[in-house]
């Protein structure tokens, strides 16, 4: 399902925190429809790389281009608007709002774009249905299982039909069965055309993606396809 369109382009991206170099000059491309896994040991710069692509943090040097937009040229507000329109994010710890039921957690992302509460809830309900948690629409996060929470989080990430779905250790806080379910769901989304970037330190999950980017000490140490790895 991949195309020639470049969704993400990183050129010599560096990120330093004081004396510590988190990214030491990373360059990479992600094409539309790809499922890319970024792997590596703790502290290798995986999450920092994800933050750069999501516009959550700014590089010390180099350029990050997503869907043709140089993120370095955008203001904070511009970055927020860009994320809202083009990116969906999934976190290890779900990051749902405790005070809102599942449906409103998902609808929230739509409402931020200016859509009405009614329209947003209709779309949110569709997504919850597609992800198999529609029955839990009125449940609050505290009443959901880990897997259900992550499905709601995925639904929220998909709310505005993002060009790129970013997932930071999406199965890291789940038991093995729930983790497998969530991973399968993400791959299904990819098979239907959703571009996917997953940060994980689990080699089995990474092996199910179309491309694996291995990082060591802030640099891309190796890029490979699962077939070669196997």
């Amino acid at each position: 399902m991949t195309s020639e369109e470049i969704v993400v382009s990183l050129d010599e991206v560096r990120k330093e925190f004081g004396d510590t170099t988190a990214l030491g000059g990373v360059s990479m491309r992600i094409r539309a429809g790809e499922a890319v896994a970024v792997t590596g040991p703790s502290g290798c710069g995986k999450s920092t790389l994800l933050n750069m692509i999501a516009g959550l943090d700014r590089p010390t040097a180099g350029t990050v281009t997503v869907r043709g937009e140089d993120l370095g040229r955008l203001t904070e507000t511009g970055l927020a608007l860009f994320r809202r329109r083009h990116l969906g994010m999934i976190f290890q710890f779900f990051n749902l709002l405790d005070d809102l039921p599942a449906l409103d957690n998902v609808a929230l992302a739509g409402q931020l774009t200016g859509a009405s509460a009614r329209q947003s809830r209709i779309r949110a309900l569709e997504l919850l249905g597609e992800l198999g948690v529609a029955a839990r629409r009125d449940s609050y996060p505290a009443a959901l299982s880990g897997g259900e929470r992550q499905r709601v989080a995925v639904a929220r990430a998909l709310m505005n039909r993002p060009a790129l779905l970013l997932a930071d250790e999406p199965t890291g806080a789940l038991d093995s069965r729930s983790g497998e379910d969530v991973m399968q769901m993400l791959l299904d989304l990819n098979h239907s055309g959703q571009t996917l970037l997953i940060v994980t330190h689990d080699p089995r999950l990474a092996a199910r993606c179309g491309r694996i980017v291995e990082m060591t000490d802030g640099r891309v140490s190796r890029e490979r396809t699962p077939e070669r790895a196997a």
Partner: peptide, 16 residues
């Protein structure tokens, strides 16, 4: 902090 971070992550602008 966590909620605000999440809201920013899904596109809430600084002004919002």
């Amino acid at each position: 902090r966590r909620e605000l971070g999440m809201l920013k992550a899904i596109g809430m602008t600084p002004r919002q």
